[in-house]
Amino acid sequence: MKNIIYILAFLFSTVVFPQNEMLFEQANTLYNQGKYAEAIDKYTAILDTGNHSTELYFNLANAHYKLNNIAPSIYFYEKALQLSPNDKEIKSNMAFAKNMTIDAIDVIPETGLSKLIKNITNMMSFDAWAKTAVAFVLCFVILFLIYYFAYSTINKRLAFIGSLISLLLLCVSLGLAFRKFSIDKQNKPAIVFAQESKVKSEPNYRSEESFRLHEGTKVQVLDTVNSWKKIKLTDGKTGWVNSDDIKLLYNF
């Protein structure tokens, strides 16, 4: 049974991948010809096959930007950044797209120790911090064995100090790994797709309107109740919007 699945998967890949490459080239040609709506259809057809790449999202975002589709352009720039978070060209183009948004939302600056810890935590992914912790475990074990079997007092002392440092760094890297995992789990960004969204104080239409948001604004989703999402802005404001008004930036 497994062999049949592997064969079918192989046959599927040999058919789909060349088709995607052909669609991508066709979409790029249409884009260069200024036929942005048609190019979007081609790029979207590739996405429908489950293909994800920085270039695909970036080109799709550019096509939407050319058509002044604010929310989709920002959404797909964000998707491209998920795959290439340090790409300067993506960040530059997204800045132009964000200039078309209406909402001007302040960012509450982080200061002191919390900012330092957050910056250090975000230096690497959860997997990278976990691998770092494993490396320090190996260092601790090796240095402890050197300490145990060494005859020289100096070697014992150096190995002992080194093993303590490795143990300390192990604890730090583990702590940062779990903190990164927690941050990633709580991080649920979304883009407002409605031209104008009424943000309510409670998850129902009868509740008081807190404020309004417009397409292209990025929010954080905190909770879900039926067809409502509790959101938070960078300035600290919270409220409830209809789920249809926003689109979540799911991870891959």
Rank of each mutant, 00 (worst) to 15 (best):
L145Q: 09
S13W: 09
S84N: 12
D87F: 02
M123D: 10
V199Q: 06
K185F: 08
F160K: 06
N119D: 15
L174K: 13
S84M: 02
Y43N: 02
F126H: 08
V134P: 11
A177F: 06
Y43M: 01
T14Y: 13
T44D: 01
L67R: 07
N122G: 12
W228K: 05
V15L: 12
K79P: 01
N28H: 00
Y205A: 14
K247E: 00
E55W: 03
T29G: 08
L138S: 15
A128S: 12
S173M: 05
I120A: 14
I90M: 08
A130F: 14
T121I: 05
F12A: 15
I102H: 08
N93S: 13
R212F: 03
F252V: 11
K115L: 12
D184V: 08
N69F: 02
M22D: 13
S197R: 12
G236F: 03
P18S: 04
L164N: 06
H214L: 04
N122I: 10
F58K: 14
N20K: 08
K118R: 12
F76W: 06
G236E: 05
K2G: 07
A45V: 03
T54W: 05
M123N: 14
W129P: 06
A45K: 03
L8R: 12
I161W: 15
I246G: 03
Q186A: 10
C139Y: 13
K118H: 11
K118F: 10
S207G: 03
D87S: 07
F140L: 14
A97V: 07
L11M: 13
P85E: 07
V219S: 05
V199N: 04
E25Y: 03
E25I: 07
L170C: 08
L138V: 15
A159K: 01
S114M: 11
G112D: 07
P203S: 01
C139V: 13
Y250D: 11
N204M: 01
S210T: 09
M124L: 13
A128C: 09
E209V: 10
N187T: 13
I46S: 06
R206D: 10
L158D: 01
H214G: 11
V16E: 07
A27R: 01
N68A: 15
T217H: 09
T111R: 04
G236H: 02
F140E: 13
D41N: 15
R206K: 15
K188L: 00
A159S: 02
Y6K: 15
I46W: 01
Y43L: 02
K88W: 04
P72F: 01
I117Y: 05
I108K: 04
K88E: 11
F178Y: 02
T111Q: 11
S173A: 02
S201R: 14
G239H: 00
G112F: 06
D41L: 12
M123C: 11
L213S: 01
A104W: 00
N59M: 03
L169I: 11
